[in-house]
Design a protein around this nucleic acid. Structure first.
Lengths: 104, 104
DNA sequence: TTGACATGCAACCATTTGGTTGCCTATTTT
DNA sequence: AAAATAGGCAACCAAATGGTTGCATGTCAA
């Protein structure tokens, strides 16, 4: 879980996921196109995404094809985000209530 | 948005949010209790959470009260997580489909 | 008013991170 | 077989990160 959060913390990596979301199964070179960093930098980002299981890659001849795995993102939504959405008052009204309580 | 992702990338900070989710409006000292780091480290984490608007804090006499703001978390769920959940096949079947397509 | 308590500020430190360059290997293509 | 293409590996670097210690300040209580 921590690896997923860490992987998502970087804007370049999120944009790589976006690209794969638009078109799945791209090669490394595909994913590099138009980005303001070297191929090696992209390789490193992809390695982090793979380690977090957000991307799965396969060698196909001399190309490496990258596939998005939406499962960890879904899990974060289910296991983490939703927890903070359940039955919450708005921040401000909750805050006022507690302040009043504290001052008697 | 980037600030929120970055803020959520650290396990200590997520645990601070958890604590505030259990009991809102805690002081700095409350939040330090039982953690394996100094008060100053916690202060820094809280500053990052505040900068990301995930926590709002108020001085009340000599105490500083911290309140969870669930809105940015909700927004990440809405604007980002959901995008990857819409109409997606499972990673594996999608992958197979595309590989077959590529080999004719 | 003096001491204790809650927090703030700043300098410092080690490690991690995001990136680079240079070179090597493997697979196609011609 | 030679050249071009796709990718991998490793060393290096600057900046950001997560943490520390030491001291200062503001507020409450005796």
């Amino acid at each position: 879980m921590d690896e997923v959060f860490k992987a998502l913390a970087d804007a370049s990596r999120r944009s790589l996921l976006d690209r794969l979301h638009v078109r799945n199964g791209q090669t490394l070179n595909d994913l590099c196109a138009g980005l303001a960093m070297t191929r090696q930098a992209v390789t490193k980002h992809l390695a982090i995404l793979e380690a977090a299981n957000l991307v799965t890659a396969f060698r196909h001849g001399r190309e490496k094809l990258h596939y998005l795995n939406p499962v960890p993102i879904h899990q974060i939504g289910e296991r983490w985000i939703r927890k903070f959405e359940r039955g919450k008052l708005t921040a401000l009204s909750e805050l006022k209530r507690q302040l009043e309580q504290r001052d008697e």
